[in-house]
Simulated scan of single mutants.
Amino acid sequence: MIKKLNSTSGSALIWVLAICIIFAVLGMAIGWVALSMNNRSINNNIQQQTYFTARSAVDTVYNQLGGEVKEGEDNFSKYLNEHLLSNEYAIYIDDMGFDEDMGKCSLTGTYDKEEKIVTLSATAKKGAMEDTVILTAKRETTDSENIWPNPTLASQLNSNKKLINNLGKDNFIYYLKESNEEDKLDFWPQNMKEAIFIYVKEDETLTISEMSNWDKSSPDVFVYLEKDATLHFALKSNAPTIFPLYINGYTGSKIKITPNNKEIAVYGLSGATVTDGKINIDESKKIPPSGYGPTGVPATGEESGVKTDKWAKIQYSSGS
């Protein structure tokens, strides 16, 4: 009987050990699966975080497009106007400055001036995870292209018979109320305006010899001559042959060039009569990039005539 019990107890011990091993393996397997699922959940959360961080970056920049820009003040809208929407048409921001738990995010932006489409691409990184979101948006303008800004919004173009300097710095609409002495149109070198308007009062004469600090591409420069007003190009021996102006005139308005055997080219001419000299049209510049019509007329009454920017999102997409 004792021998039989000893034999049975040995067999039971083996079964106990086997069951313990099986449960240990199952426990390890369950633990490994749980850990794997936990890691996957963490990675998914981080992946979602990088996506939403990148999405927040492009939305942040988009919301500042077309924002108010005041001279003498530095803000993000001003930065975008100077670097993305004017002159360079591209930006790169190494760090958007988000909180640490959102990860680090960089952003690039480009602007197609002809198509008026901006492309913003943000890449967010957190740990080993990375995600890129791309937003494209189109610039739209309001108001009719044949309406120019209201002269009531204008600054005075001349002071004591001389034209003021730095056109485009403090305003983009100017009014000549009294004939000036021969002078040049001087533009602010850091101009951010898409268009500048010059209105010449009825029966008065604007006399210019040249245009300075302007690169012949931006901003568009529009001149409107009221009834019987005159635009006088007083050319010197080394005078330019192209004046990048879009000129429109009311009944009786005139343009004259001295010496009268000279000829120049402008970007657009309508309404006014050339009485002395000759003016040609530069056909390559018939359509002003600013969106204002080359033969527009000033707004009247309470209408401002100033185009306002609106941006419409085209799509979001994921980067590779």
Results as ranks from 00 to 15, higher is better:
13 L>C: 13
255 I>D: 00
258 T>K: 04
53 T>M: 04
63 N>F: 15
267 Y>F: 11
41 S>F: 04
300 T>A: 06
241 T>K: 15
272 A>Q: 07
287 I>R: 04
181 E>V: 05
77 S>Y: 02
236 K>L: 12
243 F>T: 10
281 I>C: 12
233 F>E: 02
92 Y>A: 11
202 E>P: 08
274 V>Q: 09
46 I>K: 01
314 I>F: 12
100 E>N: 14
115 E>A: 07
282 D>P: 06
76 F>L: 02
92 Y>G: 12
108 T>M: 10
290 S>D: 01
173 I>Y: 00
190 Q>H: 10
140 E>D: 08
158 N>S: 14
164 I>C: 07
209 S>D: 07
215 D>A: 02
95 D>E: 12
269 L>M: 09
58 V>N: 05
186 D>S: 04
161 K>N: 13
129 M>E: 14
316 Y>H: 10
72 G>Q: 06
4 K>M: 11
129 M>G: 14
46 I>T: 03
126 K>Q: 14
226 E>P: 03
160 N>C: 01
307 K>D: 02
300 T>P: 06
128 A>I: 14
112 D>W: 10
309 D>W: 05
239 A>G: 12
135 L>T: 02
271 G>V: 01
131 D>T: 15
171 N>Y: 00
16 V>L: 13
240 P>S: 05
302 E>C: 06
26 L>I: 13
143 D>T: 13
272 A>T: 08
94 D>M: 15
109 G>A: 09
200 V>R: 11
9 S>I: 11
75 N>E: 04
160 N>K: 07
7 S>P: 11
112 D>K: 10
16 V>Q: 08
244 P>E: 01
302 E>P: 07
132 T>Y: 04
221 V>T: 04
313 K>V: 02
297 V>N: 15
293 G>W: 03
312 A>W: 14
110 T>H: 11
166 N>T: 07
173 I>C: 05
181 E>P: 09
264 I>D: 07
106 S>V: 00
89 Y>M: 12
250 Y>F: 15
81 N>H: 08
134 I>Y: 05
41 S>W: 01
73 E>P: 02
9 S>M: 08
153 L>D: 05
233 F>W: 03
267 Y>R: 06
20 C>H: 11
2 I>D: 13
244 P>G: 05
31 G>V: 12
265 A>L: 03
303 E>R: 05
210 E>I: 15
102 M>L: 10
141 T>S: 15
216 K>A: 12
17 L>C: 06
47 Q>R: 08
204 E>C: 03
199 Y>C: 01
131 D>G: 14
8 T>F: 11
101 D>M: 13
155 S>W: 09
283 E>M: 09
113 K>H: 13
5 L>P: 11
124 A>G: 04
10 G>D: 14
104 K>M: 07
267 Y>M: 09
172 F>P: 06
103 G>D: 06
104 K>H: 10
18 A>M: 12
3 K>C: 09
64 Q>T: 00
298 P>L: 05
174 Y>F: 05
191 N>F: 00
286 K>R: 06
164 I>G: 07
123 T>D: 09
110 T>R: 07
284 S>I: 02
198 I>W: 02
297 V>L: 14
139 R>G: 09
205 T>H: 11
18 A>L: 13
309 D>L: 08
255 I>A: 01
293 G>T: 02
76 F>M: 03
58 V>K: 05
249 G>L: 07
180 N>I: 03
152 T>G: 07
278 K>A: 08
110 T>Q: 07
